[in-house]
Amino acid sequence: MSVSSGSPIITPQTLPTWRQKEAEPFVRIEQINKQFGDFTAVNDVSLDIYKNELFCLLGGSGSGKSTLLRMLAGFESPTSGRIIIDGVDMSHVPPWERPVNMMFQSYALFPHLSVEANVAFGLKREGLPNHEVKKRVAEMLDMVQLGHLARRKPHMLSGGQRQRVALARSLVKQPKLLLLDEPLGALDKKLREETQFELMRIQDELGITFVVVTHDQEEAMTLATRIGVMNNGVIVQTAEPHEMYEYPTNRFVAEFIGNVNLFDGTVVTDERDSATIHCADIDSLIYVDHGISCAPNQNVSVAIRPEKIRISREAPTEVNNHVSGIISEVAYMGSQSIFKVRLSSSKEVRVTQPNAQRDSGDRLTWDDKVHLSWDADSSVVLTS
């Protein structure tokens, strides 16, 4: 077999670590439970995180993500189960004896100390020589691009600069594992987006394993090598961002990650490479290009992302998945427009369309009758 010179050769070494069968996890969480009285905050969670990953724990308030992070840090002890870091059982090791550091949501900077003194604090507590402290602090401040602000106090800094001081202080001790609890939550939207890429750059340069807790889906999708979605104390899906978005394994993940249209229906046919689902909301069949392997007449949900749906005034031809309705709401968002289309069943379907041209001429607007269509490979069938 010949391979063209322009074709990349995929070897086990070029695969991400978590896809390599022989790779050993750097962090292994084994059947961890955490109870507070009668309340179960984390319920039988098992998870592998690999060296140099930027792993995100994503979930809403009360999902258990922060409790799991605190157990990794050693601030909480598991009720049962084990936490193994770099091959060592850390389940009941105190925080100060773990190769772990944590960056708190509040940043917890000392207001009376300068930037460099804040960053140096942990190193001085360890008794490192002054020349070593100065060298490592200077290197870390340069990495976060704050060397020129070393003598300033925290109140003289912007929110983004304080965030980078906290990050530098967390990293200067060279932990094997850095835990970040909502690290960008205090920043405005534009600064948060800029800082996300800065955080990724620093993590890539240092090669330290990051575990980030966040409730922000876009933040997790931008930052993470992989995401673990938590709900009610359990991890409901672990996947790379693209896989999580395009192939959710259940209804909760489909709704939690991004926007989605869900059509409830009943399986009519289920072949090896295709299936049809009858949906009362559109009084028609939905065609999908994959089998489901479920019981006959089983109730399922069909998930379709808004950007996968085409919208037009003209009825499409030679398309299996087609429904019509009236535009009830329009939102112009700059890069895209959002349409809500009310079907005859009163169900609303969300459609997004990129604004690729500055002047699109005859724009779709309120009360227009439109036709919606989508390809068979745009649907994901969810059985739970």
Rank of each mutant, 00 (worst) to 15 (best):
R19Q: 12
A138D: 13
L113W: 10
E139R: 13
T266D: 05
S379A: 15
Q336G: 10
T79G: 00
F339P: 08
Y50Q: 02
M102F: 01
E218Y: 09
K340S: 12
G258N: 03
C56N: 03
S91M: 06
R162P: 09
F104R: 02
A186I: 02
Q20V: 07
M140H: 01
S344F: 10
A138C: 03
W366I: 14
N320T: 11
G59Y: 11
H131R: 14
P183A: 01
F121G: 00
E243R: 13
K173F: 08
A73V: 04
V229A: 04
R98T: 07
F36N: 01
I309A: 00
H215E: 06
M200F: 07
G81E: 03
A108H: 00
M200P: 13
E193W: 12
A41W: 01
T79H: 04
D86W: 02
T249L: 11
D362C: 09
L285P: 06
V370E: 04
I208W: 00
P99D: 14
P12T: 12
Y50D: 07
P306K: 05
L364Y: 07
R342I: 11
A224V: 02
D281Q: 13
G207E: 01
I227W: 07
T238M: 09
S4V: 06
D89H: 07
P175E: 08
R350D: 02
P129Y: 11
F121V: 01
L179F: 04
L180F: 05
C294N: 10
P16G: 01
E314D: 10
V3H: 08
G59C: 08
S301H: 11
E193V: 15
G334P: 05
